[in-house]
């Protein structure tokens, strides 16, 4: 099985068959360089920044830590495929209106991670600290995160925290639930 085999998967709703996909190709590189979907950004390539987040079968996944050939028969959704849908627009609008998009390199990853979290919580929205904490894998170097928290508050129709004590973001290990 060494060598480059064809790969069939669904990307943004349509089936794609790619000839000769090497074993060590990451999903990130397949999307960006074989399919031209550059909205999925390459950041750290080690699972530390979240810029490359996509949906696999509807769940957020780091495409830099996923082998492309693992996607055989799976459904992959990128920011291009999601944009224009109501659920993506809600998130994107919240970010835009809160001033949470600056250089913008991290934003598609945030959008994908957030859409996945909202899908998981069909039973009801989480509170703001939980949502902020569950987005902890997405790094932003520009905003200092306050505007992103504002965007989350907007999405949850929660009051915007006027200031940002540390406990807004971290689950304090010292506090017993």
């Amino acid at each position: 099985m060494r060598g480059d085999l064809p790969l069939t998967l669904r990307v943004n709703g349509s089936e794609q068959t790619l000839p000769a996909v090497p074993a060590d190709t990451k999903l990130l590189d397949l999307l960006r360089w074989r399919l031209g979907l550059k909205g999925t950004k390459e950041g750290c390539r080690t699972g530390g920044c979240g810029a490359c987040t996509v949906l696999v079968n509807g769940e957020s996944v780091l495409s830099c830590l996923t082998l492309a050939r693992e996607m055989e028969g799976q459904e992959v959704t990128t920011v291009e495929g999601l944009s224009g849908t109501a659920e993506a627009e809600a998130v994107q609008r919240a970010f835009v209106e809160a001033g949470a998009v600056q250089c913008g390199y991290c934003t598609p990853g945030f959008v994908m991670a957030l859409v996945s979290l909202r899908r998981e919580r069909r039973d009801g929205p989480p509170d703001l600290p939980t949502l902020a904490s569950e987005l902890g894998g997405n790094l932003c170097r520009c905003t200092g995160y306050y505007s992103i928290v504002r965007a989350l508050a907007g999405l949850l129709a929660a009051p915007i925290p006027p200031e940002l004590p540390k406990s807004t973001f971290s689950v304090d290990p010292g506090r017993s639930p």
Partner: peptide
Amino acid sequence: RTDALPKAQGA
């Protein structure tokens, strides 16, 4: 910001 939405769309 007028560049914000296209950035958020990965465009």
